[in-house]
Design a binder for these strands. Sequence first.
RNA 1: GCUCGGGUGGUGGAAUAGGUAGACACGCAGGACUUAAAAUCCUGUGGGCAGCAAUGCCUGUACGGGUUCGAUUCCCGUCCCGAGCACCA
Length: 920
Amino acid sequence: MEYNFAEIEQRWQRYWAENKIFKVDTDTSLPKFYVLDMFPYPSGAGLHVGHPLGYIASDIYSRYKRLKGFNVLHPMGYDAFGLPAEQYAIQTGQHPALTTQKNIERYREQMDKIGFSYDWNREVRTCNPDYYKWTQWAFLEMFHSYYCYDEQQARPISELEEVFVRQGVGGLNAACTEKLDFSAADWKAMTELEKQEVLMNYRIAYIGETSVNWCPALGTVLANDEVKDGFSERGGHPVEQRKMKQWQLRVSAYSERLLHGLEALQWSDSLKEMQRNWIGRSEGAEMIFKVSNGCEDHDMSIFTTRADTVFGATFMVLAPESEWVEKLTTPPQKEAVEAYLLEAKKKTERERMTEAHKITGVFSGSHALNPFTKEWIPVWVSEYVLAGYGTGAIMGVPAHDSRDYVFAKHFNLSIVPLIEGCDVSCESFDAKEGTMCNSGFLNGMSVKEAIPAAMDEVERLGIGQRKVNYRLRDAIFSRQRYWGEPFPIYYKEGMAMPMPQEALPLVLPEVDKYLPTETGEPPLGRAKDWNHQGYPIEKSTMPGFAGSSAYYLRYMDPHNPNALVGREANDYWRDVDLYIGGAEHATGHLIYSRFWNKFLFDRGYVCEDEPFKQLVNQGMIQGRSNFVYRMTGANTFVSLNLKDKYETTELHVDVHIVHNDRLDIEAFKAWRPEFATAEFILEDGEYICGWAVEKMSKSMHNVVNPDKICADYGADTLRMYEMFLGPLVQAKPWDTNGIDGVHRFLKKVWRLFFVQEQFGLSQETPSAQELKALHKLIKKIESDIEQFSFNTSVSAFMIFVNEMMDLKCRKQAILEPFLILLSPFAPHISEELWHLLGRTPSISRASYPVYNEEYTVERTFEYPVSVNGKLRFKKELPLGISQEEIQQAVLADSQLEKYLGGALVKKVVAVPGRIVNVVC
RNA sequence: GCUCGGGUGGUGGAAUAGGUAGACACGCAGGACUUAAAAUCCUGUGGGCAGCAAUGCCUGUACGGGUUCGAUUCCCGUCCCGAGCACCA
């Protein structure tokens, strides 16, 4: 009987679906395990072979955990709101909901062919009102909350109102946009509008003026992680900086917890490092400098991590956007400063980046008093200082900061070295090492001692305090787009008002066009009756990360009409045990999700502080392109190794008409009309194509579709081959060339269960050798899966099957456990053979075979004996004997003499169970 | 510039509490079966040298050093590749 994968796979996929084999329910009698894939954005192009890599890995893990007796939650859904569907809608007029629906159907069809064990009953779609009701709900919860630093958690905003009534802001330690100062009496005297403005300063979801990444081509703002090198991540349009009033999430309040929480997580070091960099904690001090513009004095604070270098501060620099610029510009400098500000403002983000090392700046006219040297130093304005970090002002220490150094050199400011023996004639000395000099009371200290000593002194003198700064900014939450969640906010007498929870979901309204209005309002400005009790509703929508921030919680309880996730379901499923997805979400989704979860945790809606215990980043699968070489000016193609003899142009050729880098010439002629009459210069009668690893894309003709692989080889082959390709976490090119090996393996597995076309296994007692092979495999597969080393598992299966072939082993006692081991990798063929064995129900209900060490124990060991490091012969000795016994046995061996060449033995190193080395 | 990974045959990749480098697979070469092809199976396959031969010897994990009886693995330096961050004071 042939291995008819097409029939087998179709049959079992249907069986699994019809019998709801992978439906899962809360079951407190079983341990839970939650395996999650990052849900896809359903694009119009469909899946290519790279997309399912992580899904296959998570499916193997899920199936393995089921065999191990866990109740496994393994869901899938769609991140369905987003820009591409909207862009497509603008071009074609088709409703994004329609195209999204179509794309989802296509995705589902493709995924179904691969035989995943998802519980589709729990599917979520972020664009579904039943789902985004809870996205809006979470937003309202954030609106109604503030962050208390003393308690290190989010609390209801109503508490804050009570505090204000009682004592004003005195003693309050809460996250805020700007520090306010008012008493209880002041609070009581405020109008309702003023009170709301004060509260907005503390809300976790708040509206406020901020500098944003504005993308004119897309007509919307973008988050920092949506901008790459000054261009929008989606579409590659230029991005500029603008001040705008936007909804924001106070993610920065969680900086410390987001950083600290990383420690306990089983994430890769590189990913944790990326998040640490993004959060960007730095310890330093805020220091107050007296500044004078000649008429009046002010106290201005700066942030520094190098308080020890204050004796070398020979100038100050303000960010162009700093509010100090206006106060400190003196009349004679006014014109120059204004010209500079205008120039800086005109630049886009992109220009700022490309001109990053161009040194610009202008003198303000004012001076600051260095509190330690008591010298008056000039105050400058320059773009290299960022308004959004620290206080937007710095002290310039050119000797020990490379940016200050180039600035000082350019404008001829003085440079004072502070470390003994350092040479600052060509560059600054940035390292935190050496002995201090020219630094008053710090002289003679090492830098490491001087940093805290300087900060102590600053605090003692009352001219500043220690301060921790974070790079992490609040997340900008408004998008001027159509295809996203509407904000449940309306505006009444200038105040942003929350809608009541009963009004949710606030359903996205219909519009006639998906473009901004003529007056520049977002597309929702076109919606009819877009108001709440006659008051206008917010016209922005939420960004992509809104819907993806809590979807893993919804899977736990997807149909609950009363809560995002019910208490009972959440208490059982708790958090994601294993999360598999791409590293590109390191500073986006994975930060926002952690923030969102921590917020819900603070407010008591979920029971775990961190959402994703273990995270694995699968490597991207790149394309492997093929090339043909056309002779310039002719329709003649030259084979790879002859091309250097001619003048040729390289052309991408469809990888589907190339096999093992040999071009199928007939298919090539049929591929494009202009090649129908092509001529070829062959080598050894064949046309050899060149190849290269590139991104998988249509234009490179290297896109391989999983449907085609499933049709040609079957899903089991696809699954195993994707795993065999290399380590899961590593980026690697797709190369269909090697797939035959895996396919051959599955055919061998099939044949192993048949004797002369008849299915049949014997009930014979297995031999010691067979048992040993099986139990080694049981152990190997288990440890490989636990470590995500799926590629070596596939090899182990191949070795095992080859050995059983050699032994002609057809014994059920061996092959039945083998089938169970194989089933997570190749579920269809395993299921088929399982049923042919008369076993029922599905193999996914079986138990993972128990490893028995007895069968794999070795009693003797062939010791490699080397003389002076060179392997010479092998000596078989019992295991478990002492080092001395091994030495004696080897020295007594007659073979040793001929390798010693008469020399005396100086030393014998024997490692039990490893090796013997004789030194002479 | 800073941080983190990584450099092993023609190819994808195995092997690190330091212990026979190249498992497994692709490709290639040769062979068996077949009228033939496909499929399947068997043998060989890092490089070099010697031999009719079984075989033997040398060399080999980016490069240069070090530690060690022994280094792909540990340490120092250099080069190269990939990823992330980038005026974050």
